[in-house]
Write a protein that binds this DNA or RNA. Structure first.
Lengths: 211, 211
DNA sequence: GCGTTCTCTAGACGGTCGTACTAATATGTG
DNA sequence: CACATATTAGTACGACCGTCTAGAGAACGC
């Protein structure tokens, strides 16, 4: 009987850690290149230069790879935002929004392929019943909450005009997520200029006192 | 030898017209329900209550169905916008933008499933080489051009502030396209309120004289 | 009525999918 | 060294994919 490595109590081997990481990276690249529908385990294995059996050995299922890929990229983005210090959480709302936009767009500009892959996976990945794994409920919980909080705080302080935090949060995320397409389609995009445009746009869209 | 119906010079039969339309509708529904990756011809045929062969008979390939679906929905949306009169083309830029937003969101609210399917198809559909059929070039040509024109005209008249028409156009489209998810996830969404929020947001984001 | 064309069902085709299994090799420990 | 375990390539499996074909039924001009 096959030993499910993840369920045994032992520590992960050096090889296992490296392989899992390699496979996840190759899965991200493959999804970016061929899309969610075209990212088969055969193509992932081919890119990694290993046999398909290695993937089956280190992961229980294809879904586990994709879900780990999403988690890994999310963790990297959060770590990047933390490290950049652009978004400390206790900033004044205008600065918080600006920091959120700048750190997100900067990360995407530096790693457009993995963001594109994550967008593909979160959009396309479904369980056996056809339901989205990363559906609206997941997005509202994991992604939109923080933004809405910024907006509510800004409105409480009177820095932001009176708009729906939910609608604005969704708009911000859609614009941010779309940036990976822009960077991939036009690698020569002026990131600083694009970022300034987006920041200015949402500053005008949110600030109070001009209505 | 099988006769490729579309390439013969004869007129389309009553049956052919009806079948093609039915198959396209079922494909839209299937894509909406199972996503691009999960929308197989078997499922389309099952939904239509016909055998898979009928699809092959009326369409040369699966790609032809998907591409016709996109074209059909686009045509309906354009017809809706035309009929609603919200967007006449020679309006003052502020009104043009408002009309664009309102007619788009109204159509999506009325037909969220077909818009969702089109978004799925345009994002996921690739040719044999793995290249997106409805890629960035297509979007810029078919979708963004009109918006950019509105923005440029508004800037020329001094009604809009000085922003990048391209960035703003992309933002508008992302927000509009995302509305189908909102309506599908929350069917009880207050469409009028949501529309007013989006209109207000882009009016603040674009208008001159407050910077 | 007959004959032609249109339309459909049913099934087969080659291919790829995700997964499971086997047997061989690598690795590391006593 | 022997031995156990970790890791690998290779292959086989059943399921489903998109496409194709043979032949039966339906529709319709004559």
């Amino acid at each position: 009987m096959r030993t499910n490595i993840r369920s045994t109590g032992r520590d992960a081997t050096f090889t296992e850690t490296a392989r899992r990481s390699q496979i996840v990276e190759c899965a991200i690249e493959t999804v970016c290149e061929f899309g969610y529908a075209g990212a088969s385990l055969s193509r992932v294995a081919e890119r990694a230069g290993i046999s398909k059996g290695v993937i089956t050995y280190h992961f229980a299922s294809k879904a586990e790879i994709l879900e780990e890929a999403v988690a890994v990229v999310f963790a990297r983005g959060a770590e990047f935002a933390m490290r950049s210090g652009a978004f400390t959480g206790d900033s004044e709302p205008h600065d918080a929004l600006r920091g959120y936009l700048e750190s997100n767009l900067a990360y995407i500009a530096a790693h457009p392929r993995e963001i594109n892959a994550v967008v593909e996976i979160t959009r396309g990945h479904r369980d056996a019943d056809g339901r989205q794994v990363f559906g609206t409920a997941w997005e509202e919980r994991e992604v939109l909450g923080l933004l809405e909080e910024i907006f509510r705080e800004g409105q409480r302080l009177g820095h932001f005009r009176d708009f729906s935090p939910r609608v604005m949060a969704v708009a911000v995320r859609r614009v941010i997520d779309g940036f990976s397409f822009q960077v991939l389609a036009h690698p020569d995009t002026d990131v600083a200029a694009y970022t300034a445009e987006v920041v200015a746009m949402f500053e005008h869209a949110t600030r109070a006192g001009t209505a």
